[in-house]
């Protein structure tokens, strides 16, 4: 089993678009969307219908029994997340701010606080070609990192030994990204020739570097700025990161996707450059 993760640091560099194209070329059996705050990859498979396979419970949330609460305020002063507020003669929990630490429960002299399971989102799948996993975080539930770990657990339960899974990662460097990196065999960084793209690539690479996971770079829209593309290549060389592809900019990519196709259908030059990236990727993962 090989798990290949697509990351970028900066958003909008083309992670999902390239994941979709590589999935088709590699005929991968599993495609996983770990960008749970803005999931999109299912849109590349307009004929598939996602079914909920599991609810996602985030961390439990505190609940104060208004009858048992005497309004002493111990919970209010102990909570580090500003999640407890006075309300009339007692206290109430702001579920959005509560991080489920249970400290309020620990300090309550009246045992008036219970921890409750709260559905924080849903995990979806469509078993077919490919098997597609996705998830949606419920508005305001936070902790998207935990949801990412849960989707990957679902994948681990179903995936078989010699399958390949492509994982579309979230932008940024925070908790969902950290969760998406765990246990992957290979990382593809998709970047673009802008100073923002390069700056963000440097930041994400700094975070991932320590974990020694084999990685490679794809420069998307490389012809939008030759000099910055060169700077990205210099950075990659310095860090011994192989560049497996340079994909030109072509507005027909957006058009193709809007019509339910992938970037492989956009134009000949796009198709060729993605194929080349895919061949190099194959050499690296074998």
């Amino acid at each position: 089993m090989k798990k290949i993760l697509i990351l970028s640091g900066k958003g909008g560099t083309g992670k999902t678009t390239i994941t979709g194209a590589l999935a088709r070329l590699l005929r991968v059996e599993y495609v996983v969307d770990c960008d749970v705050e803005a999931p999109n990859i299912h849109l590349l498979y307009p004929d598939t219908i996602l079914h909920e396979i599991a609810p996602y419970y985030g961390l439990d949330k505190a609940w104060i029994d208004p009858v048992a609460c005497t309004g002493c305020g111990s919970c209010f002063s102990a909570c580090r997340f500003e999640a407890i507020h006075p309300h009339q003669a007692h206290f109430v929990v702001d579920e959005m701010a509560c991080e489920g630490c249970r400290v309020c429960q620990l300090v309550c002299p009246e045992s008036a606080i219970q921890m409750k399971k709260v559905v924080g989102g849903k995990i979806f799948a469509c078993f077919g070609t490919p098997n597609l996993y996705s998830a949606e975080l419920k508005m305001g539930s936070g902790n998207s990192g935990l949801l990412v770990s849960r989707i990957k657990l679902q994948l681990d339960e179903h995936i078989h030994e010699d399958a390949i899974a492509l994982i579309d990662g979230p932008p940024g460097i925070g908790c969902p990204v950290i969760a998406s990196i765990k246990g992957v065999d290979f990382i593809i960084f998709v970047t673009e020739p802008s100073y923002s793209g390069l700056h963000d690539l440097e930041r994400i690479f700094k975070m991932v570097k320590k974990q020694c996971i084999p990685s490679a770079v794809i420069i998307n829209k490389y012809d939008l700025h030759d000099e910055i593309t060169q700077s990205i290549m210099d950075f990659a060389e310095k860090e011994s990161l192989p560049i497996i592809g340079k994909i030109p900019f072509d507005p027909s990519v957006v058009h193709a996707q809007n019509q339910g196709k992938t970037m492989l259908d956009a134009s000949y030059s796009i198709n060729q450059s993605v194929r080349e990236s895919c061949d190099k990727l194959k050499q690296l993962i074998d």
Partner: peptide, 10 residues
């Protein structure tokens, strides 16, 4: 603001 719809955006 950051991308996404999670706790930081909120």
């Amino acid at each position: 603001c950051p991308p996404g719809n999670g706790c930081q955006v909120m």
